[in-house]
Design a protein around this nucleic acid. Sequence first.
DNA 1: TGTTTTTGTTCAAACGTTTGAACACTTTTG
DNA 2: CAAAAGTGTTCAAACGTTTGAACAAAAACA
Lengths: 343, 343
Amino acid sequence: MKKKATITDIARALNITPSAVSKALNGHPRISKKTRDAVEAMAAKLNYRPNHLASGLRKGQSGLLGMLVPATEIKAYAAAINGAEAEAEAAGYNVIIAQSRDEYQKELKVFESMNRTQVEGLIVCMASTTTRFEHFDKWEKEGPPLVLFDRIFERGKRHMSVLDDYLASYVATEHLIEQGCTRLAHLSGPLHIPTYENRMRAFKDRLKRYGFEEKAEWMPTSALTIEDGRAFMEGCFERGEIPDGIFASSDYAAFGAMRVLQEKGLKVPEEVAMVGFGNEQFGAFIQPGLSTIDPESEAMGRLAARLLIQQIRMKSSEIPSYRRRILKPKLIVRESSRRNVHT
Amino acid sequence: MKKKATITDIARALNITPSAVSKALNGHPRISKKTRDAVEAMAAKLNYRPNHLASGLRKGQSGLLGMLVPATEIKAYAAAINGAEAEAEAAGYNVIIAQSRDEYQKELKVFESMNRTQVEGLIVCMASTTTRFEHFDKWEKEGPPLVLFDRIFERGKRHMSVLDDYLASYVATEHLIEQGCTRLAHLSGPLHIPTYENRMRAFKDRLKRYGFEEKAEWMPTSALTIEDGRAFMEGCFERGEIPDGIFASSDYAAFGAMRVLQEKGLKVPEEVAMVGFGNEQFGAFIQPGLSTIDPESEAMGRLAARLLIQQIRMKSSEIPSYRRRILKPKLIVRESSRRNVHT
DNA sequence: TGTTTTTGTTCAAACGTTTGAACACTTTTG
DNA sequence: CAAAAGTGTTCAAACGTTTGAACAAAAACA
C-alpha cells in the first residue's frame, strides 16, 4: 500500500502549480489544451485518484447520500435502494444505507450518525414505531435536505415519493368485488401511518359504495406478520364468520391467513379470494400464487433520490416549496383471486 | 439549513484555541477536567457535530468501508450486508454498498469508484462472470486492504471469509443418501468458482464412497436460475431417466426442478427427494417446504468485516499473512427431503 | 530558593483540493 | 501605437480538524 499520488505530485512532475493541475483536471476554460493533455497523461501515468475527502472538505460536500429503511431484506426496500442507488450514481453520489429495524430508538441513532457523516441529503422511510417527529423537525432546521418515501406523515410539508395508497387499495378492493366477493376483510397496519390509513379509507369507501357490510372484526390492525395473518383467520373460524374476500396490506399477512384457510379445508380462491400487498418474491412461488399489489418500489427509490438531488442542487435558493411524487400501483393477479376464469 | 458549528466556534465562545477544543473532545490526557467539561457543554449547546471530512483528511482515513455484492435482493447477500454493517458500526465505520449484477464490467467500475471514494477497505463477493483478476492484483498493490467472501478464487493468498462448501455438499448429499436415494443428481454453478467446484467434488466423493453411479447428465452446470432447474428436469424426462435425489446449488434451481416434477405427477419427496442451497425465503413457503443449506451469510459478512477491520488496524505492520475464516453450514430439513418420517 | 517535573494550553503546520484575485503576456481594437 | 480585451498561469487563502513541539505556569523536589 504505497502513498497515493496527489495533485501536487503531478504538478511537480510537470513543473507547474497544483492549482493549474486542479483546473486542468476540472476542465477550467482558461487552461490551455497543451497543459490539460500533459496533466491528463501524467495523472494516468501516476495512477492519480482524486481525494474525495479533500475536495469534499474544500467544496463543502461529501458526495454521500444517506438512506434509512426499516430493513434491507424486505423486497420493497431492497428495490427502493436499487432505484435510489442507480439515480445517485448517475449524479456522482454514493449512498450509505442504514436500517432502523422498525425501531424508533434505532432511527434516532441513525439520524445522529448520518449527521456526523456529513451526508448531503437523507432519504427516509420511517420506522413503524415512530410516532414522534422531533428528530425530523430538528434535521430540517439544521441538516441537509430530506426526502420521505413509502411511509410518510402529514405534519408539515415535506418532499416525498410515495405510492398512491388510496388508489392501490381501491384497485385491490374493486378487483375482489369484481370476482364476486361481497363479505370483505382488510388486514391493516397501524393507522397513524397515512399509508395504511389511506388504504383503509379506500377500502371502506368501496364497501360503502357497494353497500357491503363493514365489520370491525374484519378490519384489524397489526404488524402484518405471517403470525398476524394466521391469528386473524383463526379468530374468524372461532367466531364462525368467514369473509369471502381478503385484502391484506402485506403479502406476509395474506400468506398466514391463506395457510389457515387451506388447513381448514377452504378453497382459495373459490371460497375465499385473497390479495396481498408488496409483491414479495414468495408470492409467485406458493400455491395458489398470491395476487398482490406491486408497490413500484424501485421507481419510488429512484424518484426519492431524484427529488433529493434536485433539492441539493438548488442550494439555498429560497424555500423550494415541497414536492411529492405519487406513483401508480400495479395490481398483479395470480391464482389466489382469479375466480371467473371463463369470462 | 444554517452553517454548522465548528470546533473554532466553540473555541471562540470559550476564549480558548481550537486545538484545545479538539484535544478536549478527543480525551487528550493533558486537558484539564474543567475545560473538558466546558467544551462539552458548549459543544452540546451549539449542537456541534464533528466534520468527518476534515478529520478524515487530516488523519488520512475516511471511516468508510466498501462492500461489493452481486445483488442486494438475494437473501444471502442481504444477510451478509447486515452482518458486515453491524460489525462496521461497532468499529465506527460506515459501509458503502455496491452491486455488480454479476457483471465483470460493472465490477471493474465499482473498484474504480471505491478507490476514488477513499474507502479504507473493501469486502468483495466477486461476480460470477469474473474470470480475470488483474483488478484484484492492482488493488492489492495500491489500495487498502481487501477481503473476499462467499465466492473466492485461489490465486494468491488473500483474506477471506467463506462457507465450508465441501462440508455443505457433503452434508446435503449424505442426507439424501440417508433418506434412501441412490440415483443422485447435482445442479452446479460454473466450476471455475471454487465454491461450486468444492461442492461438486464433495458430491462426487460421496457417490464414489457409496458406489453410486456418476452420470454426467446429472451434474450439469448453469447459472442456477429457476429456468435452469426446469430445463434440467425436462431434459431428464425427455431422456426418460429420473434421479431419485437432487441436490441443487441454489434454491431457485431446486424450485424449478421441483415444479416440473410436480407437473409430471411425481411425488416430492417420496419419488424424488430435493435439497437446495441458500435458504431463500420462499423455501419455507412453498409446498413441500424446500430442504436447504443455510449458508450462514450473516456470520460470513460479520467475519469478513472483522477480518477487514483487523487488517486496517494493523496498518503497515508487516505482511499480515493471510487469514481465512471458514464457516460451518447448517442443513435445514423440510418436507422436500424428509422420507422416513417414522424412524 | 533554585531546579526539575508535571500540567494545561497555545502555536503552527499539515492533510489535498479548490477558487477568486492577481499577474504577465498576447492579441484585438479604435 | 496605446488602450482594452483575452488568455494562461501562479498566488494565497480557505475548508475543519489533528498533532507534535513549544511554552508558561504550577507543583514537586532537593
